[in-house]
């Protein structure tokens, strides 16, 4: 390549373009096979299906087992989202404002759930929750998922705090606002983007978590990912294809919608 083209942005070679396209396909395509699978009619996972039907969607929405797992997951995710956000926002502010020895150590300790191997966390929590009779309860799922989610909230809010000018708080306080008013009217609104993304992180962490939930499940209560897991390993239940397709579609829409809105806004 001639050196004169070196620094020009927006010029990438054909080789790189090909590579990027291939990786894009690799990122996206494999997951999409669940969609044709979900419209199959057969009792097995044979792909592509020989006949087509909507029976697995029907099954998904009419099966008490699948529906109750959806409800459990939604409850757990919502409660985890709220609990982790409240705890995480407070902790992020504390870590940012506090001046005490060992602050960085504490911050690292709070990030630990992100790096301890997933399976180890799962069996550890399972062992303890068995003794405390928290397995098979919604509270058990929520507490375990909160532990995993808090670090995400702390990092999101910390990012917001990093670009935060605390003199506005001083200004508000000097104008007579009480500590509570400053928090409610100044601090939290300014941190809103970080708090919101922390909540989404926490919500999705719970919604997607399989391994701990796998251990904590009982026949009476299981989350959606666990129901999906069991439908592959225990019973060959193609309903999972319908569930997966719905998840893929919902995720895609949820992710693309803000992008499209942002673009429209910037164009108008």
């Amino acid at each position: 390549m001639p050196s004169t083209r070196a620094g020009r942005p927006r010029s990438i070679g054909w080789g790189l373009r090909l590579w990027v396209t291939a990786v894009a396909v690799l990122l996206l395509a494999p997951t999409l096979v669940v969609i044709p699978m979900s419209f199959g009619a057969g009792q097995t996972f044979a792909f592509p299906p020989k006949e087509w039907s909507l029976r697995w969607y029907e099954e998904f929405f009419s099966s008490p087992q699948w529906m109750s797992s959806v409800v459990t997951s939604a409850q757990a995710a919502l409660l985890t989202g709220v609990l982790a956000t409240v705890i995480g926002v407070a902790a992020a502010i504390g870590l940012d404002r506090g001046r005490f020895p060992g602050r960085e150590l504490l911050r690292s300790a709070m990030m630990a759930p992100m790096i301890v191997p997933g399976i180890v966390v799962a069996v550890a929590i399972y062992g303890t929750f068995l003794r405390w009779h928290l397995n098979g309860t919604l509270l058990g799922f929520v507490l375990a998922h909160t532990v995993l989610a808090v670090p995400f909230v702390i990092t999101s809010v910390s990012t917001s705090l990093a670009g935060y000018d605390s003199t506005v708080e001083v200004a508000a306080a000097s104008l007579g606002a009480s500590g509570w008013t400053v928090l409610r009217r100044i601090t939290l609104p300014l941190l809103m983007p970080g708090i919101a993304s922390g909540f989404v992180f926490a919500f999705v962490t719970s919604l997607d978590e399989v391994v701990i939930a796998l251990f904590l499940q009982t026949p009476e209560i299981r989350t959606l990912p666990v129901q999906m897991y069991d439908s592959i390993t225990l019973e060959i239940d193609p309903t999972i294809a319908a569930a997966s397709s719905l998840i893929v579609v919902v995720t895609t829409v949820a992710l693309l919608l803000p992008q499209l809105v942002r673009r429209r806004r910037s164009e108008s």
């Binding site: 494999p30 997951t31 669940v34 997607d208 592959i232 999972i240 997966s244």
Partner: peptide
């Protein structure tokens, strides 16, 4: 969802 992707 990790489960959906692994099922795929």
């Amino acid at each position: 969802s990790v489960m959906a992707r692994n099922f795929a």
